[in-house]
Structure formats: structure tokens, C-alpha cells
């Protein structure tokens, strides 16, 4: 009898595994007595049976909870299938072949957003390495007047590079602890990915709304974006996890966590810019018109409307201090009183 070959693509994994069965009947399931044992909580202990009868492949659903799907249709009865057909059980996809299948397996199951090969890994590291150089060039030419290229490169470029590398390493180590939890891998990766993108977005929003960050940052963020892509590739490679951008529930959780995380930091950032006494000159007339945000006001206008609120604000600050001082004075008074009574 011709052996049955199963190519199994477990959810969240970027690689498939191929298993070969000599017996004419293979039970696929989560139970320990299944011939093909799968780690997928949405699969029943004995989920379906694949058989080779009279040189024909058959598939039969064993009353599984979540059903067996062939081309998106749940099968009700035992039915014949062609070699090379993909079936879905739970969140796992299995492609069934006869051993004599002559067509090489098609590349249909990989769902990764980025795909890897040695070339891409080299490219990713190259992009990472480019980061300190490009960011230093930008910083030196756009604003940083006080240190030269090499000072800045050694002082901040290299540090940036090392901290990004550290991020990749730590993230990979965390994920190694959870090797048997592909969902968790996926979650970690998604959080990292969304966090990176949202952080960049929040800075761009900061520039747009308040014009408070130096203008060169716009270019700088573009470089960061490329670097973020590189980090994602390296992470995926070390985790062996794909990151498709379809909105499955697990990715929604990742997105939600990232949004909350970044929302908090974005809020802090923006309120810092708004309240900062030290708004840079990004919107001054020294810079090109496209980067200016606030039009200059007439000086008379500045006097007419500008000051009452600042006086009021300073009075509120002083009032707060007065109350604190009064409180301290009362406390000191009370403790003196107590001392006097004790002394008596």
C-alpha cells in the first residue's frame, strides 16, 4: 500500500512539518492515541481519519467539535480527495499527499508578511548598522551645532545601535522561554511591531500638532521606520513566527496592548510639549514655510490678550504653595502644642 504524506502547518509557525505514514489509515487529532498528534486546542482528540482505499485517498470527519473543512466547506460524510488537497482542522492546515505525488508541494501555506532567507537577514543587519550612521549625519546637519560627527557617532549612534540589538536579543530570549506557545510568540511580536509603529506615529502627530520637535526629526523618523522593519525581520527570524497583518483575535489583543501602552506615552509626550517652557524654534521664520506652524502675532495683541491667563496661572501656583505652607505651619503648631502639654 502507498504511504500517506501529510504536510502540517500549525498556526503561528512559519515552517511546515512533513510526516509520512505507512499504514493505510491515519487518525488526526489532539488525543494521545491519534496517529498524527497535533497541538491545537481547537482540534478534537480524534478529529478526522484519512485513509487510502483502492488507491484512492479518503477523508472522514470523526464528529469533531469544530469540523473538518475542504475548500472552506465542512465535510459531512466520508469523501474522496485528490492528492495535494489542503484541509483545515481547528487552526491547523494539513495538505494530504500520496507518496507518489509528482508535483512538488506548492508554496501555499506560508502566511508570513515577511519571508526570510539568508540574504534578507544580512540585509536586515545591514539596515540596523546603517541606522547609527544615517541618524548621526542627520543630527549633525540638522540642529546639533555643538558636537562633530565622530563625537555624536560614538556617543549616541553606537549606543542607539546597541540598544536596538539588545532589544532584539531580549525579545528573542523571552520568546525562547515560551517555545511551546506559538500564540504567545505571535502576541509578543505583534506588541513589538505595533508599539514601534505607534510610537513613530505619536511623534509625527506631536510635530504636526505643536511643532515642538525639531524639524529634522521628520527625516529621522523615516530612518527609524526602516530600522523598525529590520528589527521585525530579525525578530521573526529568531522566533520562527510569521506576522501576517490579518486581524485575528490574537493580533487584536496585541494591537490593543500596544495602543494602550503607546497611548499613555503619547499622551505624556504631547502634554509635555504643550506645557513645555522650552518650545524649540521649529515653527520660527528661520525655517522653511512648510515647517512653520504658528503665525506671528502682533506685539500689541500679545499685551492685550496674552497675560491675564499667565498671571492667573502663577497666582494659582502660589496659592497652592500658600496652602501647603499653611498646612506645614499648622502641623508645626500642633506638634509644639503637644510638646508643651507633654512638658507640663
Amino acid at each position: 500500500m502507498e504511504p500517506i504524506v501529510l504536510r502540517i502547518h500549525e498556526y503561528g509557525h512559519s515552517r511546515c512539518q512533513i510526516q509520512k505514514f505507512a499504514s493505510p489509515s491515519v487518525i488526526v487529532g489532539r488525543g494521545l492515541d491519534a496517529d498524527c498528534l497535533l497541538d491545537d486546542q481547537y482540534i478534537s482528540p480524534a478529529h478526522c481519519r484519512i485513509t487510502m482505499e483502492d488507491d484512492t485517498l479518503w477523508i472522514e470527519d470523526l464528529h469533531s467539535t469544530n469540523g473538518t473543512f475542504v475548500r472552506k466547506t465542512a465535510i459531512k460524510t466520508k469523501q474522496p480527495i485528490d492528492s495535494g488537497t489542503t484541509v483545515r482542522l481547528g487552526r491547523t492546515r494539513i495538505t494530504i499527499f500520496r507518496a507518489s505525488h509528482r508535483v512538488p508541494p506548492a508554496d501555499v501555506l506560508e502566511t508570513g508578511f515577511f519571508r526570510f532567507g539568508p540574504g534578507r537577514i544580512v540585509l536586515a543587519w545591514f539596515m540596523m548598522a546603517l541606522f547609527p550612521v544615517l541618524s548621526t549625519i542627520i543630527k549633525v546637519n540638522q540642529g546639533n551645532y555643538y558636537s562633530g560627527f565622530w563625537n555624536l557617532f560614538l556617543g549616541s549612534g553606537i549606543t542607539d545601535f546597541l540598544s536596538l540589538t539588545l532589544l532584539v536579543v531580549i525579545w528573542s530570549l523571552i520568546s525562547k522561554i515560551f517555545t511551546h506557545r506559538p500564540h504567545f510568540h505571535s502576541l509578543l511580536l505583534n506588541v513589538a511591531l505595533f508599539a514601534l509603529f505607534i510610537t513613530l506615529l505619536s511623534d509625527v502627530v506631536g510635530i504636526w500638532m505643536y511643532g515642538n520637535i525639531y524639524s529634522e526629526r521628520v527625516v529621522y523618523y523615516f530612518i527609524q521606520l526602516i530600522t523598525a522593519g529590520a528589527i521585525v525581520i530579525l525578530l521573526q527570524n529568531s522566533l520562527k513566527v510569521s506576522t501576517s497583518l490579518s486581524l485575528s483575535s490574537i493580533r487584536l489583543v496585541g494591537l490593543a496592548v500596544a495602543i494602550v501602552f503607546c497611548g499613555v506615552s503619547m499622551h505624556t509626550d504631547i502634554s509635555t510639549y504643550r506645557e513645555s517652557k522650552y518650545k524649540p524654534l521649529a515653527n520660527s521664520t528661520i525655517l522653511p514655510p512648510a515647517l512653520r506652524l504658528t503665525p506671528a502675532q502682533d506685539a500689541q495683541e500679545f499685551f492685550r490678550h496674552g497675560w491675564d491667563d499667565v498671571f492667573a496661572q502663577s497666582e494659582a501656583l502660589a496659592q497652592k504653595n500658600r496652602e501647603e505652607k499653611q498646612k506645614k505651619r499648622d502641623e508645626a503648631h500642633a506638634s509644639n502644642r503637644k510638646k508643651e502639654i507633654d512638658a507640663q
Binding site: K277, L281, G306, L317, A318
Partner: peptide, 25 residues
Amino acid sequence: DTATKTRYIRLGDTPWKALLGITNL
């Protein structure tokens, strides 16, 4: 404890950035 305000203003024809800081004693 200083309240501040930043504005871009014009003195004559030239633009200036004004930073006002007020502390109530």
C-alpha cells in the same frame, strides 16, 4: 512655580519669539 507662555510676535516688521514667565510670590 513659574507660569509661562510662549508666543511668536512681531515688533515692527520683525518676528520674535516671546517667552513670558510669571511667578506670584
